[in-house]
Every structure is written in C-alpha cells, then in structure tokens.
C-alpha cells in the first residue's frame, strides 16, 4: 500500500517535470528566455500586493466551478456545460439586481437576492442539460456544449438588446450597478471576502458531501456503476439530476459573484473559461476534493502571472493555458502508464 503511494507520487512528479520541460522548449522556440519567462510569471502572480489580489480574485470562481464539477464527476457525468451555467448565473444575478435596484428593499437583501438568483440560474441551465440526458438521451457533453453557445448568445442579446446601456450597446457590458449594490470588497480592490468565503465554504461542503454522507455514497455508486446502483435501490436518474442541479448552483454562484463583486455589470464572456479550468483542476487532482484549494490557487496564479509574459516578453498570455493543459494531459498520461506498468508487473 505504502509503496503504491510512492510510485504514484513518482509518476506525478515525473509528469510535472515533463510538462515543465516541454513548456520550456516551447518558450525557447518562441524566442523567450525560459528562466526569465518563469520569473515573470512568478513576479506577475506574487510580485506585488495588487498581483496577489488579482490571483485571489480568479481563485474564487475557480474554487466554485471545481467544487461543482467534483459532484458531477462523482456521478459519472462530464458537465462541459458548466461555462454556460456560470454565464446563466451572471445573467440571473443581473436580472435579480435590476428587478430590485429601484425599490426600497435594503441593498444587503438585494445583493443576497442576486446571489440566490445566480444559483437558481446556474441550476436551471444545468437541469436543462440533465433533462436532455435523462429524458432525451442526449449525451451531457453535447447538450452542455450546445447550451454553452446558447448562454453566450443570450448574454450578447441582453447586453446589446433589452439591457443595453443608455444610448448605444457595447461589448463592455451593461450599465454598472449603483455602488450600494456591490458585494463589499477590500478597499480599492475587486476582492470580496464574501466571495472568497463562500467559495471556500462550497469546497468544504463538497468535501463533506462526498466523504461522509449517504448522498455522496449513492452519487458515487451511480457514477461508478449505474445498473448496480439501481439494483441496490438507488433512484439513479434522480441522483444524476441532483448532481447537475448542485453543480449548476455552484457555477451560478460563481457567475453572480463576478457580477456583484468584480465587474458590477453583465458583460459578454463573463465566465471567462473558469468552468473549463475547473474541469482541468478536477482531473489534475484525480477528483480528490482535499486538493482543490491549493491546486486551484496554483492555476489562478499561473493565469494571472502569465499576463506579465504579454507585457514583458510580448508573448501571448494564453501561455498559462499551454502549461496547464500540458500538466493535466501528462498527469493523466502518467496515470495510464502507471496502470499499464503495474498490471504487467
């Protein structure tokens, strides 16, 4: 047993080093001095308080989306539709704020309503993907992908149509909300302690859910073998739907926080790839909730840090994506190789 853990760790480390090696080669080919580039990423992420805060700001939605997909993965579902669910969360939160912004309802309550609306919107969008799968036989990957496009189109329609800024609609989004409807942030930043707190809470909830509850155990049974789970008396499709709803609610909350704390308005592409990144993080940590917090932080740091590459080395900032994707790919490859080798042994 012990030995297995070490072999496992060895493969992980090997995969990490290989990913680093390949990205270094890419950097060399791109004409950027590798060490300097890595240095820029580091200083871009942690070099100043401002940068660190930017990392924390992207950490929060990543925690939420990763927590969400851990649930759907446990149920054996590939919730690719999480991007759309986050977008719908943002749309619903905006809707909630707009509904109450000109009333006498206390701002704190409106903010809470916005968050709840966001969760409901995400859950609704996830329920659609779930219903397509359960009742329509549409694989959740295709259903989710399609719904992502619909969600994007819907945002653009709203931003340029019914919710456009006074005058002319613009890609920069709807008219910003009044300051009293902003989720409280650290002074002078877009970092909301509430957002961070709720995100960490979500991870803890998922951790407990999957670890010690009947719900989590049944979900895992459904994910690992639906037929056996059914024979053991688990209402299988209902559990799949629950998984979608929960994941959607978390993604929706992430979208709502983007609206209420970061941008204070709805804008196109508000999900910003956090959903897909959440899927990557979940795969990288082998679906173990305990690792979400540090690894999501690492990914957020890479994302923010690589913005420096663009500024300093004139490289595309998507370089962070290259490193992240390689990492996940090689770790998965390492797991496959390990299984093959151990089976042969």
């Amino acid at each position: 047993m012990k030995k297995n853990i070490w072999i496992n760790l060895g493969f992980q480390a090997g995969a990490f080093l290989l990913a680093l090696l390949i990205t270094t080669l890419i950097l060399i080919f791109a004409g950027a001095p590798p060490l300097k580039a890595y240095g820029s990423i580091l200083s871009g992420a942690f070099g100043s308080q401002k940068n660190l805060i930017a990392v924390l700001i992207s950490w929060s939605p990543l925690l939420l989306t990763t927590a969400g997909v851990l649930i759907t993965f446990a149920a054996g579902l590939w919730n690719i539709g999480i991007e759309g669910q986050m977008t719908l969360g943002a749309i619903f939160a905006t809707w909630g704020l707009r509904l109450f912004q000109d009333t006498n309802v206390s701002p704190a309550l409106i903010i809470a309503i916005g968050l709840l609306f966001g969760m409901a919107g995400g859950a609704l969008w996830a329920a659609l993907a779930g219903a397509l799968k359960t009742f329509g036989g549409v694989n959740e990957i295709f259903g989710g992908l399609g719904l992502n496009f619909v969600a994007t189109a819907l945002t653009i329609y709203l931003v340029f149509g019914p919710w456009k800024r006074p005058g002319v609609g613009s890609m920069s989004g709807t008219k910003p909300f009044d300051e009293k409807l902003w989720l409280s942030t650290l002074p002078g930043t877009a970092l909301s302690p509430w957002g961070i707190g709720l995100s960490i809470l979500a991870v803890i909830v998922v951790f407990i859910l999957l670890r010690g509850t009947y719900f989590g155990l049944k979900l895992k049974a459904v994910g690992k073998n639906m037929r056996s789970a059914f024979m053991l008396g688990v209402p299988t499709w209902q559990y799949s739907m629950f998984a979608f709803l929960l994941c959607g609610a978390f993604a929706g909350l992430a979208g709502a926080i983007q609206v209420e704390a970061v941008y204070h308005r709805l804008l196109p592409n508000i999900s910003n790839g956090y959903g897909f990144l959440g899927l990557l993080v979940a795969m990288l940590i082998n679906y173990q909730a305990i690792w979400v917090i540090p690894i999501a932080f690492f990914f957020a740091a890479l994302n923010v840090g690589s913005i420096q590459l663009q500024i300093v080395h004139k490289m595309d900032s998507s370089f962070a994506g290259v490193l992240q994707d390689l990492l996940v790919l090689l770790i998965l490859l390492g797991q496959g190789a390990r299984e093959r080798l151990l089976k042969k042994a």
Partner: peptide, 27 residues
C-alpha cells in the same frame, strides 16, 4: 455480478451501507 450487482471501486463496507436503509444524512 460486476455489472448489475456490485459497484466496482466501492469497498465492501460502502456496499453494506448502501444496501441498508438510509438513516439520516451522515453515514
């Protein structure tokens, strides 16, 4: 047995818990 009876990846204990009546939220 492995397709329609048992759930690969779950332990014996987890199977016994699943098969019994659910009691409350936490296991």
């Amino acid at each position: 047995r492995m397709e329609e009876g048992l759930v690969p990846g779950l332990t014996l204990t987890e199977h016994f818990i699943l098969a019994e009546e659910t009691q409350g939220v936490f296991i």
